[in-house]
Write a protein that binds this DNA or RNA. Sequence first.
RNA 1: GGCCCUUUCGUCUAACGGUUAGGACAGUUCCCUCUCACGGAACAAAUACGGGUUCGAUUCCCGUAGGGGUCACCA
Length: 452
Amino acid sequence: MYSSTLPSPMSNKVVTRIAPSPTGQMHIGTVRTALFNYIFAKQNGGTYFVRIEDTDKERNKEAWVDAIWKDFEWCALPPDTKYRTSEHLERHIELLRSLVDSNKAYISKEPKKDDPSQTVEVIRLRNPGVNVTFTDLIRGEITFDTSELGDFVIARSLTDPLYHFAVVVDDGDAGVTHVLRAEEHISNTPRQILLIDVLGFKRPVYAHFPLILAPDRSKLSKRKHGASIENYRNQGFIPEAIINYLALLGWNPGGEQELFTLDELIKLFSIDRVHKAGAVFDIEKLKWFNHEHLKRFSALEFEARLKEFLLEHGEKVPEYLFDITPELQMRAQTLGEAAELLRLGEFAFMEPSIELHALLLVQGAKTDAAAIKKHLHQVAELLAPLSNEAFTAEKIKEAIFPYATEVGRAGVLWPMRVALSGREKSPDPFVLAALIGKEKTLARIEKAAQML
RNA sequence: GGCCCUUUCGUCUAACGGUUAGGACAGUUCCCUCUCACGGAACAAAUACGGGUUCGAUUCCCGUAGGGGUCACCA
């Protein structure tokens, strides 16, 4: 019986890694695994690296390699080092050959899997067929009978290693101490341990995190559920929120606080509070996290992020963007929603001129046109004394609210708001007036009054 | 199907033998209010089932049922 021993934390510096394959967009689950590896390494003063697992030449694409680097950068989970599996091919060949030379593996002539008319030579491991037991930090002791694995294939040829072999060699050479990965890899672990043992590497500590599930409780998929990081980025989710949400999917620090920064997560994370069961991905809750993080941004930061988002999506950046930032922060849960508000003309009142319909002026005012006209003139009179400096939402409200309350707010505030925005829905009239300035405010009110 | 993992409100979760089973998202209602948002308050909603162990089980043990993962010359 084999059993894994925990390396002494005193003698071993923690080394973790994340190993995505360049076969498509990066999965949100990969980001989560990267996050846990990153956090675990940082909180233990260790290192964390990214290795692109590019052993499958058929399915790999260079474009995806670049996309992966870009995604890691965007997520702000920068690795201490990064490389590709293919860079270590010589080392793989060396160990593959030594395994065959020592008769621990052998070359097997057999019909090709996808084309039985052809014969190929693959490398198979001589499987001792023992029980393999390892300790999973999250699930405890797990035992597998590896005899049912048979003499599994470890390379397509002496110069073409397969995933399990390459992973074991690379992790061993890199001194990976902790393999933190998703639950789907539990059943891969025994065959990797078999290879670790036969190659004489030290076994790492394992921790298999619960899966991220779709609403139907199946594994969240990029194809079926749009679970690529690219997809969320395009919707205007920000990395701070994604990281916060992902960290809390399957783990929590115990209190009732839910909003955390990466630094806080590094301080608080503890692997023994990680759940065992899969967690359903809820985009509504992600949106809430996103909104909360967006609201915490300074106006300057928010403007910068939104500007970048708009530019990336080929949308024009209004010159008044900074002025309406507070409104946008309040209204949009994602940068995508903010962009949509802009696109749909929600802030068209900021443009030099607006379209105004007399009918709308009366619609919600609960009074007649004559009264409205009178109120608009009164509003103009009340605002006239205010200097440009004093033309703030608070001062404007102070000037108008008593009058509005006296004669009926709906009769004053609705027409004023419509006069300034031309719209049925908008921010309140005081904010509106402050935003567009005294001159335009008075001009629009006068114009509206003339329409009645 | 074999093997492995897993099970608290619709969802994410708290409670490490004793709580009116707590919070958050979503939902509903109300308040704020000139509209839309924001904000505030309240309501509704869960321990899969059956046995044990125990004075006492969400919590420990064993079954059953459900869910998931994995069974490649992919990673």
